[in-house]
Design a protein around this nucleic acid. Structure first.
Lengths: 243, 243
DNA sequence: GTGCCGCTGTCAATGGCATTGACAGGCTCG
DNA sequence: CGAGCCTGTCAATGCCATTGACAGCGGCAC
């Protein structure tokens, strides 16, 4: 169907042949559009062009844009989980920390491959059947590490929101036109470079690191994640001592 | 000037008297629109109506919407910092943890009072001069607690992104029409309620807590924040032992 | 005081967006 | 062979940000 769509979109310019859409072909095309290479913008008109069909034809398969986005996030989450599985084929293997890190990073990676989707997805948390097993596994990992079940579930939820929120935050920034990004960056650089040393001694000393972190969203995420997991470790310790 | 604008907007319906806008009056009106009571949507046409002026008049004071939003986030951050100051008038007082918690929560509160702004603000990190002192103070608190300067700065950055990202995440959800929210909620409830106990034992046991957390974004944030700060504590401990 | 200029509000228009309803071709089922 | 549904097409609606031409009002120079 990949091939078919491509064929249509190249040849379909002249002859007005109807293209037959399917849920799958639409999702594929939409994912392509969401990636930076695909233009990084998901709109019905672009989607129509990509499919070689009228934009409104999509409405025959998805009630509205929201429903389309929901389906796309579902796919993306699934892909992230799959990615994690490939990275750590042996499962948790008693190292809860590595497992959680890889899982979070994988989901983040999948999302960031399609920043436009991440932005659209906003706060829609799909109750995807695909991820259910992963959630059970995640909780189980934390539980075996020593956390009571409910607390393990809380940690899962916290980690999930943390990851999605920060990923969307990054995606939103990466969507901005380069001009605006540079403007922001310049503002920061000036701000941190020009600070009077006597009034802001600490800020002055950490300015290099801060400007370095400015563009390194992944670095900041890694920082947050590892600090958060340090916190989880503390909780596990506490639970063990209490139990 | 507040009064003047108000006077105009009440009396100005009939007589087409020109309203004189100022940067301040615009920002005020815009903030009002961003709050749920004000309609929760910031558009030029609404803004024009609110001001009793032509929508496009705003362009005389702000180059585009982005610039307006930047100014608004600046105000909001300032307000958050002010809030924190009021909550803890004595300053850090050697309790870094309380200080960081209150600061983060205050910024979050200010943002959530205007969800529409939070969504628009997305990843624009303003280099607001207003907050510079707070940043210096924040780093100083962590430094006095025992963290090397650079690491303190890293923690600041991590905490900032964490807070903003999660707040915007929450705001994005709260913006959705109630119908969509209910749909999501229903999906979750079904998902967690219907889980076969034998296949997902842990998920089944934690289902009540998870559905409880579903709508409680503030609770999740508190959870993330406190876990993160546990992690910071670990780092402080490490640094002390190493130094 | 007079004339000019710039500041700022107004108006009309543009192009993009999601979404809707009427229409039409082709497919399947009877 | 015919009815009806599935699905693509087309035209139109309403909201959005943004732009360019225009117009009044104020202050400034002379």
């Amino acid at each position: 169907m990949e091939a078919r769509v491509a064929e249509q979109s190249t040849a379909g310019q002249a002859n007005k042949r109807r293209v037959t859409l399917t849920r799958e072909s639409i999702l594929e095309a939409a994912l392509r559009l969401c990636s930076p290479e695909g233009g990084g913008q998901l709109t019905f008109s672009r989607l129509g062009k990509e499919l070689g069909a009228d934009p409104t034809a999509v409405y025959r398969h998805f009630r509205d844009k929201d429903e389309l986005v929901l389906a796309l996030t579902d796919l993306t989450i699934q892909e992230g989980i799959e990615l994690a599985r490939q990275a750590l084929p042996d499962g948790p293997a008693d190292d809860w920390r590595a497992w959680l890190t890889v899982t979070a990073q994988s989901v983040r990676t999948s999302y960031l491959a399609r920043p436009a989707l991440a932005v659209l997805a906003a706060a829609r948390t799909t109750a995807s059947p695909a991820e259910t097993h992963s959630v059970e596994q995640l909780i189980s990992v934390l539980h075996r590490a020593g956390l009571p079940v409910v607390e393990a579930a809380e940690c899962y939820r916290a980690l999930l929101d943390l990851t999605l929120a920060m990923t969307q935050y990054t995606a939103a920034f990466s969507i901005l036109d380069p001009q605006a990004q540079e403007k922001d960056e310049a503002a920061w650089a000036v701000k941190y470079g020009m600070l009077p040393e006597d009034e802001f001694p600490l800020l002055h000393r950490s300015a290099p690191r801060l400007t370095e972190l400015f563009r390194d969203d992944d670095g900041v995420f890694a920082l947050v994640l590892s600090t958060f997991l340090d916190g989880v470790a503390v909780r596990i310790e506490r639970a063990r001592n209490a139990g």
